[in-house]
Design a protein around this nucleic acid. Structure first.
Lengths: 354, 354
DNA sequence: ATTTAGCACTCGAAGACCTTGAGTGCTAAG
DNA sequence: CTTAGCACTCAAGGTCTTCGAGTGCTAAAT
């Protein structure tokens, strides 16, 4: 069931206005801001219909109308047109993102802060899910006796490392041998397939004494497992307090409390599935649809960036339900495209991105 | 000029009460909460004196008294007694901090979140100032053609690395040679002494073609410089909204805006100098004394942890001026001690911290 | 010379009450 | 089906009042 012509236009106009003003939209003010060939009375009738259909809500009898979650849903699904960014905006974003260093973490931090700055809302970026990427190299570099840097190179071109301790009687030569054995045994295995069991069996018939091997194995294992760890970068939480809907401290607190709970948002993004845009690029959750405690006053817009065909991560924007969806979607998509390009070029070693 | 006996006790009682209740302290309620052998009238006279002396303020005529910045200053300087943590608390903190991985960043993140959780305020941790540490090792490890991991090992036992690109016609052997030359030329130099000039001259009479050398030099340089970069970890900003003094959105916003401005707090900590506690361990800035925009409703308690004799970093707690200073100081100091031990043991490779 | 009881005074907080006007829904005519 | 007109509703904001917590001062008591 979709909306008929005039009602559709009216609903769109109402939501557009509300997004801009944050004030309940009245029949008259709607008239003055748009060119309907209608009287306010007719408009009122239509608005009353739209309310009955569940697209609008009325804070109280003598107030204008406010979009309901269902109203916003209709809006993002079939009413709004995604505007495209001005050249100036594109250039600005490009500048910021392209100034990233080559590290993935830096790229994502940068993308997140750019996105938050551009939209004025909260932005998040989640590191890619590397479970299904496979191990390409594993090097162990002795920093000093007992202290080793484990460098993990994954198929997607991602490099992670971790400083670990090993027994300090191990010589650099022994370490080199063990490290090679482990690399040889594990190379080509995907992260999700590497467990303490597989890793132990993979190296078990190497000519290295078990005593030494076992001590190093475990550290190598934790280093590899850590590469799989999802990290979330969040930016711009402070901007929430500038929005009229969050002048109420308790509402803001609800959101902050959830966002600051370790792992909640990361876990959420990791499990995302649901309504995508028709073109499959972005995804919008409105109010209750975000099934997270205390987030029902917000909307959450997300998209997926690609490291390679299989390996993906997410970026997203969290703002009030009354967010400027069309701007957010276009900006987020642009940032996503830049991240994709960056990662692609990164792996191909070409220059001049953008 | 320091405070005489009775006034001193009264001031202390008032501030203790205010810290606990967040309500202006009245003569009667003060009487009921403490055992003074005095009437409320006498108390009122004393309180009036204390106000005239600048230690107290009155929000309005018919309200109780509230400590002024000067009052808090007197309190932290000579009134409060630092309480010591219960065994349970100590154990709790120890558990959390000792679960840190060996990476410095992880240790600081962990310390910061522990500190915020324990105090209920905002906590910060700044990575150590490594300017004066010197280069011990510089290794460049070829990940794949054109992609190199630069590992920088510093005197203080700190290891940093950075992924860089180099021209992809360089072979692993060439890279190895160049890297060794750079290491040889720079080893023992402190970070602040390493500039593009010194680095260039340090390697200029090695038998490697300039064309190759120069391309790698710059990347090595940026990797080294990056090791010097200060990183700030902050935790618990959301807790601010639970405090009665920040129910006012605009106050909270002031603080958030400043804290979220990139580099502001890090720069502030980096430049810290001023009133230390008698024993030189911690430092308290109250209200205006924090010379940062919008922070005049807060106090900032900081201390310094040691990586080695010369290399230090900071941790701190930001809360309302009405913070529980004695608890904060003792908790922060305990965390500092744990960090110190961790870092020391880390460099000595001994186990069982705490 | 302090201390204290007593009392008048102040002033914010909270509630009652009123007014205003933006906005609606309904009705009856176009 | 649309619209003009009107009665109705109700939050926001202003004014007034009350209430009481808390003070400062004065004069007596120690």
């Amino acid at each position: 069931m979709t909306l008929e012509g005039r009602k559709k236009n009216i609903l769109q106009a109402i939501i557009d206005d509300y997004i801009e003003t944050a004030e309940p939209v009245a029949s008259k003010s709607l008239l003055s801001r748009h060119q309907f060939n209608l009287s306010s009375a007719t408009l009122r009738n239509e608005m009353s219909d739209l309310e009955q259909m569940g697209y609008l809500e009325q804070p109280h009898t003598s107030a204008g109308r406010v979009p309901s979650d269902k109203g916003y849903r209709e809006y993002v699904d079939s009413l709004m047109r995604i505007d495209h960014l001005s050249d100036v905006q594109e250039e600005e974003i490009r500048q910021r993102i392209n100034s990233s260093f080559s590290e993935l973490a830096q790229l994502l931090k940068n993308a997140s802060s750019t996105l938050s700055e551009q939209t004025g809302y909260i932005s998040v970026a989640l590191t890619p899910r590397l479970r299904s990427s496979y191990l390409k190299q594993l090097k162990m570099m002795m920093i000093e006796p007992g202290k080793v840097l484990v460098v993990v190179v994954l198929s997607a071109g991602v490099v992670k490392d971790k400083l670990v301790r090993i027994p300090d009687f191990l010589t650099a030569e022994q370490l080199f041998e063990v490290s090679n054995a482990i690399e040889l045994g594990l190379c080509g295995l995907s992260l999700e397939d590497i467990t303490l069991v597989t890793i132990t069996s993979a190296v078990k018939d190497t000519p290295i004494p078990d005593a030494i091997l076992n001590q190093v194995l475990f550290e190598a294992y934790t280093a590899i497992k850590q590469a799989d760890h999802l990290e979330l970068y969040m930016d711009g939480s402070h901007r929430l307090l500038s929005l009229p809907e969050f002048r109420d401290v308790d509402r803001a607190k609800n959101v902050f409390d959830t966002l600051s709970r370790d792992g909640i948002v990361a876990g959420y993004l990791d499990n995302l599935s649901g309504r995508k845009a028709p073109d499959g690029t972005y995804m919008i959750r409105i109010g209750q649809e975000i099934a997270l405690q205390g987030m029902s006053d917000c909307s959450f817009v997300t998209t997926t960036y690609n490291v390679d065909d299989k390996i993906v991560g997410n970026i997203g924007v969290i703002g009030p339900k009354r967010m400027d969806y069309s701007k957010v979607v276009s900006q987020m998509n642009f940032v996503r495209v830049l991240i994709d390009k960056h990662l692609k070029n990164d792996n191909n070693r070409t220059e001049d991105i953008g």
